[in-house]
Design a protein around this nucleic acid. Structure first.
Length: 586
RNA sequence: GGGGAUGUGGUGCAGUUGGUUAGCAUGCCGGUCUGUCACACCGGUGGCCGCGAGUUCGAGUCUCGUCGUCCCCGCCA
């Protein structure tokens, strides 16, 4: 084998005159008749190789047979390119390799996707031929950055005393949360393992064991419907520590991210991160994961309508509701009536009674409520709430619902209509409520998870009267509108845990069945502990400026959870099913 | 579970109110060419228009169904 002495990305004018060997793929062949240029590519870069018939006719002729994506070994001499032929777009553009020997390791059929072009092929094909797609520069860069992120994580956390410990994939189904992926047990027919949705319980057990600083780059599995930022299996940087409070976890995460962004992406980020309470986030952006770079904050207009004669607005005001809206600039001319109707339709689907729009253009104010609220609109205009060219979207109703509807509309407009902004908008979201009310099942649910420490003075004050007012010691980290991290201080006291389970309406029997081993462990001196999990895929995607985490996962799955390349999931043999004592309903 | 978009030579796209032989670019094959770098130029190959039914004298185009993919809502403690 003709083994490489150099990679395709490292030769420079320093190496002129050396005899070297390159290994790689043929990126492109340029046949000028009397001379032949071949670009050879590996993951480090590309180098131009030159075949000269005058120097070696036979070698030249064998090089004529090269096709794209052939794998080759080439021995040659590093030459300086003529001054006028230096390619300043290439890192190796000052030199070229004068070929002396060529070995074709393997030929390639015409590839179904272009490896040497960045234009995107159809996503179906990209996934089917993922190994070719992965040869492309963009995905190679993304995965290299992902490696640096993982490496930085290990370096930083190890150097601050964290231990990397693995937890099982074959474990037990836990209630609530996402749907589990199940794995049938052969030795215990009829029983199932579940793949972990996260290592949550195991890492808490590790705290009980005294591994007071733990981390893991852990694969997690959730059988739900997928999105651009959600795959059935994904990776978390899972962190837990003992004898710490919230501030300690913030410091660890801020230190880690600062180091990681610098090491992996060469970016300096400011710490400490800004903090926004859940209530403020919902009030100002209608979302618990706002991208604040785009502005368009929600404004409360209720005051303008206190004495309104418009019946439906008056009834909202009288019943303690709110009238809020946000402004999109420079859209007055752009939104057609049809577009506005579409927005209205969407708002209704999200639960609004209707969507009020107010447009100020060169002819003045136009609005759905122009006739019934002329005076109110005048005041809004006079106060400079709306400027020429602006479109305001306004919703009236119960506060939480209004925030949510406007937040969704805001996100949609950002997603569909705005150029992506550079930079990283990083913030902690804090002071989440402990519980949410599930309307369908008419009972309390844990907003984060049932091991989250409630704010103790809140618990005391509102336990019996208004549990929705109890805040939790938990936190999210949001970057550019993505939930990147979620974590909490955990309950380590039996009495509090019991109380929370009771409030959630979990019967003792069910508690023991589902969390028994954790509660057992907590009988033997659990330390105060807290932690979090960072979404590695989302984090890398944001660092790579990608919209979809598929672009930072080597072998991702489609929205229906299939792997087009491997053709999974798939049927299995009778024998396998028999071993598992599983029969399929026709 | 719901909504939207999409499927046409190997690949990326166009295809008008249904109307002769489905077009363009690129790739691929062949040819010319000694400094290209997305080499250029000339010639050629290549498609049952995702699949199935229907309407029609006639369907890439219209209707219904079905499958795949993408995005969103629900869901994701």
């Amino acid at each position: 084998m003709l083994k490489r002495t150099h990679t395709c990305g490292e030769l420079s004018s320093q190496d002129i005159g050396k005899e070297i060997v390159l290994n790689g793929w043929v990126d492109r062949v340029r046949d000028l008749g009397g001379m032949l240029f071949v670009l050879v590519r590996d993951r480090y870069g590309k180098t131009q190789v030159y075949f000269d018939p005058a120097a070696d006719k036979q070698l030249y002729e064998s090089a004529l047979k090269l096709g794209n994506e052939y794998t080759v070994g080439i021995k040659g001499i590093v030459n300086k390119r003529p001054e006028k032929d230096v390619n300043t777009n290439m890192s190796t553009g000052e030199i070229e390799v004068m070929a002396k020997e060529l070995v074709v390791f393997s030929e390639s059929e015409t590839p179904p996707i272009y490896v040497n072009k960045e234009d995107d092929a159809n996503e179906n094909l990209r996934l089917k031929y993922r190994y070719l797609d992965l040869r492309k520069e963009k995905l190679q860069k993304n995965l290299m950055l992902r490696h640096r992120v993982a490496q930085a994580t290990r370096n930083y956390l190890s150097s601050t005393g964290f231990l990397e410990i693995e937890t099982p994939f074959l474990t037990k189904s836990t209630p609530e949360g996402a749907r589990d992926f199940l794995v049938p047990s052969r030795l215990r027919p009829g029983l199932f393992y579940a793949l972990p949705q996260s290592p949550q319980i195991f890492k808490q057990l590790l705290m009980v064991s005294g591994f007071d600083r733990y981390f893991q780059i852990a694969r997690c599995f959730r059988d739900e419907d997928f999105r651009a930022d959600r795959q059935p299996e994904f990776t978390q940087i899972d962190i837990e520590a003992s004898f710490v409070d919230k501030e300690d976890i913030f410091a660890v995460v801020e230190g880690l991210l600062k180091y990681m962004f610098k090491q992996a992406a060469g970016v300096d980020i400011q710490t400490p991160f800004k903090r926004l309470s859940y209530a403020d986030a919902m009030d100002r952006y209608g979302s618990d994961k706002p991208d604040t770079r785009y502005g368009m904050e929600l404004k409360d207009l209720t005051g303008y309508f206190a004495g309104t004669s418009a019946a439906f607005l008056k009834s909202v005001c009288d019943n303690g509701g709110v009238i809020k809206g946000f402004t999109v600039e420079n859209r007055a001319e752009k939104y057609s009536r049809k577009k506005l109707d579409e927005f209205t339709e969407q708002a209704k689907k999200a639960g609004a009674n209707g969507l009020i729009w107010i447009i100020k253009d060169k002819d003045g104010i136009r609005s759905t409520i122009k006739k019934m609220a002329e005076k109110e609109l005048q005041s809004i205009e006079n106060d400079g709430i709306i400027n020429s060219g602006d479109v305001m979207f306004v919703v009236a109703g119960e506060q939480r619902s209004v925030n949510k509807i406007l937040g969704q509309l805001r996100s949609q407009i950002i997603r569909d209509e705005f150029e992506k902004l550079d930079g990283f908008d990083i913030m902690w979201i804090v002071d989440f409520p402990m519980f949410a009310f599930n309307e369908e099942e008419k009972k309390l649910e844990a907003e984060h998870h049932p091991f989250t420490m409630p704010n103790l003075s809140d618990l005391e004050m509102y336990e019996k009267t208004d549990p929705l007012k109890i805040k939790a010691e938990c936190y999210d980290l949001v970057i550019n509108g993505y939930e990147m991290l979620s974590g909490s201080v955990r309950i380590h006291r039996k009495d509090i845990q019991k109380k929370v389970f009771e409030m959630l309406g979990l019967p003792e029997e069910e508690i023991n069945e589902k969390f028994g081993f954790l509660l057992d462990a907590f009988r033997y001196g659990p330390p105060p502990h807290a932690g979090c999990a960072l979404g590695l895929d989302r984090l890398v995607a944001v660092m790579c400026n990608e919209d979809s985490i598929k672009e930072v996962i080597a072998f991702p799955k489609t929205a229906t959870g299939t792997d087009i390349m491997a053709d999974a999931p798939n049927i299995v043999g009778e024998r396998q099913l028999r071993d598992l004592k599983i029969s399929l309903n026709p």
